[in-house]
């Protein structure tokens, strides 16, 4: 588990701060996220964990009047640096959202959206990409006979796996997941978790979750955020069994507040 300590981190923040208007929502966060592993970020609502995640692919750009300080580096590139190609960056850093958000197109078109948009493969190779990604997202067997059916007709869990397939089709190296299971039932959650476990050998995965059992099940390392600060970060097992910080302990044992 510690073998990736030697590899340079896939995502690294150094004294990274973030403001929505006047409100500072991230306070000098310094964090290192290992490549090809699952890192969970836990913490109470409003602690800034989603904000942090949405800084990594600059989804926060949608909100007007934000500013940052400090450094956030993804695979050697400064995310808020002036030379960043945002479109290419977002292609390399995929994201899965809290609510499944398939496009109201066919299943096929959903998965083919990214590669077609970014011209990653020739058009004739798209069917192959779609099949590979749907297989990877453990959805192929359920949808292979109805690729042209509307994606909105799938169940919530299937939609979320479709969104994962859609993100994978873009050939990212980093996958951000913002509470990907919070809108799913336990069975669907289990499937998505198995999938995350599968994917970690090839992708750097950062998963924000409210669900501590989920963090314990899927992540090798876990970070605990509170009030915009990274309180503690370590091996998942250590965080949950022997937290060094009393705030972490209070949170994971449910004695929070």
């Amino acid at each position: 588990m510690t073998d990736h300590a030697s590899a340079p981190p896939a995502i690294e923040a150094r004294d990274f701060s973030f403001w929505y208007g006047e409100r500072k929502t991230l306070h000098e966060v310094s964090i290192q996220i290992a490549p090809k592993a699952v890192t969970a970020i836990i913490g109470p609502s409003g602690c800034g964990k989603s904000t942090f995640l949405r800084c990594v692919n600059r989804m926060n750009d949608l909100v007007v009047d934000t500013r940052t300080e400090g450094e956030l580096v993804v695979e050697g590139r400064a995310v808020y640096g002036s030379g960043l190609d945002l479109v290419a960056h977002r292609q390399r850093v995929g994201m899965v959202f809290q609510r499944p958000n398939p496009f109201p197109k066919s299943i096929y078109d959903n998965v083919a959206y990214g590669p077609a948009l970014n011209a990653l493969v020739p058009r004739r190779a798209l069917p192959e990409v779609v099949e590979r990604c749907l297989r990877r997202a453990a959805l192929w067997d359920e949808v292979k006979d109805r690729l042209q059916a509307p994606a909105t007709g799938l169940s919530g869990g299937q939609q979320q796996r479709l969104c994962i397939a859609r993100a994978l089709a873009n050939e990212p190296s980093v996958l951000l997941m913002d509470e990907p299971c919070s809108a799913l039932d336990p069975i669907a959650t289990l499937k998505v978790e198995e999938l995350i476990f599968e994917l970690k050998q090839d992708y750097t995965i950062v998963i924000v979750t409210h669900n501590m059992q989920q963090a314990a099940r899927v992540a090798s390392r876990t970070g605990f955020f509170e009030a915009g600060r990274l309180v503690e970060m370590g091996e998942t097992q250590q965080i949950f069994t022997a937290p060094r910080n009393e705030r972490t302990e209070a949170y994971i044992t449910g004695r929070f507040g």
Binding site: F97, N101, F103, A167
Partner: peptide
């Protein structure tokens, strides 16, 4: 829904591509 725009942008769409391929079709 804002999720549609976010989905397109997160897949590397420019603002105009997000509008023309995700928001308007929706």
């Amino acid at each position: 829904p804002s999720g549609q725009r976010e989905a397109a942008l997160a897949l590397g769409a420019t603002r105009w591509e997000a509008v023309s391929t995700a928001i308007v079709p929706y």
